[in-house]
């Protein structure tokens, strides 16, 4: 089983007086088809970790391998390329474009990706069908419920067939019933082979994961049956 994410003594310090060490030297390995929950209260450094994992930010120390690529060797464009090819994002606030239909929002992920124009609409429709929205392909986000919107966002993250799906508080804006359906969707995606990392403060969400990692004051510690290497 190949390793998708390997953090080796990665740390992130924000400059200032005094400098803030948002993430202390941390090690984390996520294998293919892992389902990891990263649990932490607000201010614990979990957003920093998410940004590092999602290649939206650079660590100030240590090494981050994604799919065997040392991300420190990548320039800005290379990192953008990795985001397009390897990472799927799901945000708490969904981040859908209001003036585009569901299928157009999903297709958006393929605009900036090499080879993304091949069968784009067909694949977007397939991705929406996969998250259970095959009947609302041409609906606008404003006419969708919160759960449906998050499903569109999940479909958007899936269309590029990412190595890693990064979810940031995916149920933060949803009620408990809708949250449950999104979590079931994550379960099924995991069962079909996807690698997921979910960042949350919600125990109900983290309990669904294969293993849990707690982040507190910038320190990563394993929880439950999971092993942090």
């Amino acid at each position: 089983m190949s390793v998708v994410v390997r953090l080796d003594r990665v740390e992130r310090t924000f400059p200032g007086t005094p400098p803030v060490q948002a993430l202390k030297e941390s090690n984390l390995t996520i294998d293919e088809n892992d389902y990891v929950a990263i649990v932490g209260a607000s201010g614990s450094g979990k957003s920093t970790l998410l940004h590092l994992l999602g290649l939206l930010d650079r660590p100030t120390g240590g090494t981050y391998w994604l799919d065997g690529v040392d991300t420190a060797t990548l320039d800005d464009n290379g990192r953008a390329g990795m985001r397009a090819e390897r990472i799927g994002f799901v945000f708490q606030a969904f981040h859908l474009l209001g003036h585009r239909t569901a299928v157009e929002n999903v297709m958006l992920a393929e605009i900036h990706r090499r080879g993304g124009s091949v069968d784009r609409r067909k694949r977007a429709e397939a991705a929406l069908t996969r998250v259970g929205l095959g009947h609302r392909l041409n609906a606008y986000p404003t006419t969708l419920s919160g759960g449906e919107r998050q499903r569109v966002a999940v479909a958007r993250s899936l269309i590029g067939e990412p190595s890693l799906l990064l979810a940031d508080e995916p149920t933060g804006n949803l009620d408990s019933k809708t949250s449950e359906s999104i979590l079931e969707l994550f379960d099924s995606l995991h069962n079909s082979g996807l690698t997921l990392a979910v960042i949350t403060h919600d125990d109900d969400v983290s309990e669904r994961a294969q293993r849990r990692v707690r982040i507190h004051d910038g320190m990563l510690t394993p929880l439950g049956e999971g092993v942090v290497r």
Binding site: V69, T73, L74, A80, E85, R86, E161, L189, G193, L194
Partner: peptide, 22 residues
């Protein structure tokens, strides 16, 4: 239930991906 097709391209081919915008 649903199968996910795996990335077929080897990682080294994507060491320096250049995103495109047609």
């Amino acid at each position: 239930m649903i199968s996910i097709p795996k990335q077929s391209s080897p990682p080294q081919a994507l060491a320096k991906p250049r995103p495109v915008f047609s």
